[in-house]
């Protein structure tokens, strides 16, 4: 469903993505990890063209991203994204946050949008908060609203960019639960995370990035179970992060 062919990107002279090739099939749950600055966030943001690329080709659901003919808003509407700092719109209340893009981009009627919005709000367990403003919710609640906002668009894939790294530790669990539940229901997704136990629990496949390159793209069993088969960089990263946990 998503295909990356030799994708490279530079910021000035600095190469953030170096010849990345991989693909994601329908129903895949892929965890992307790697040290900070390795380019994983940039990689994920190229999937919905929030970051442009200079070389290579990205195809999402049969549509070429670097084709100037591509209607980016329409494509982005089908790719759900959850950000590190939630990025709810602070001037809109919860239900308005959920319905804005449904009405303006998908062209749903207001009633229809509210129905969808409430359905997903219930799934993340926040129906009672529908009239609150983001500033009145806890970080964990805001992130769950952000997940519901993305789901209300009926996405073909969900992208998570370190969804729990800005949260207080006691709120991490509630957000991870929602994501795991989604994965079990068969949602295609791509998750950047440093929570290794969560990663083990969530996915069958791990992509490890370092200095803009995809260093490992393997099954979770290989990644976590057979460190001896991994590259030196991945081994070092794993041992560091597991020691810290």
């Amino acid at each position: 469903m998503i295909e990356f062919k030799n994708v490279s990107k530079w910021y000035g002279n600095f190469q953030v993505l170096n010849n990345c090739t991989f693909s994601i099939q329908k129903g895949d749950v892929v965890v992307i990890c790697g040290p900070s600055g390795s380019g994983k966030s940039t990689l994920v943001k190229t999937i919905n063209a929030l970051e442009s690329i200079q070389q290579g080709e990205i195809i999402v659901d049969g549509i070429k991203l670097n084709d100037p003919q591509t209607n980016l808003p329409q494509l982005r509407a089908r790719v759900g994204m959850v950000f590190q700092n939630f990025e709810l719109f602070p001037h809109l209340n919860v239900i308005e946050n959920l319905t804005l893009a449904q009405i303006k981009v998908l062209g749903r009627s207001k009633d229809q949008a509210i129905t969808y919005g409430l359905k997903y709000l219930e799934r993340v367990g926040l129906l009672s908060q529908k009239d609150k403003f983001p500033g009145q919710l806890s970080g964990g609640q805001q992130q769950r609203v952000a997940i519901a906002r993305a789901l209300s668009m009926d996405p073909i894939i969900m992208l998570f960019d370190e969804p729990t790294s800005a949260l207080d530790p006691e709120m991490v669990g509630e957000v991870l639960d929602v994501i795991v539940k989604l994965a079990k229901e068969g949602m295609t997704m791509c998750v950047i995370t440093h929570e290794m136990s969560f990663a083990k629990n969530l996915s069958k496949r791990v992509i490890f990035m370092d200095e803009g390159k995809i260093v490992e793209d393997c099954s979770k069993d290989k990644f976590f179970g057979n460190p001896d088969l991994l590259s030196a960089r991945a081994k070092e990263f794993l041992s560091k992060i597991l020691r810290n946990n």
Binding site: Q74, R76, M81, F83, L88, L100, R149
Partner: peptide
């Protein structure tokens, strides 16, 4: 990231400015 959030939902530039 606020700009990205709007774009990620599929808003076009005008909608991004006007609503977000």
């Amino acid at each position: 990231a606020q700009k990205h959030a709007g774009l990620a939902l599929g808003l076009n530039t005008l909608q991004l400015y006007w609503y977000a």
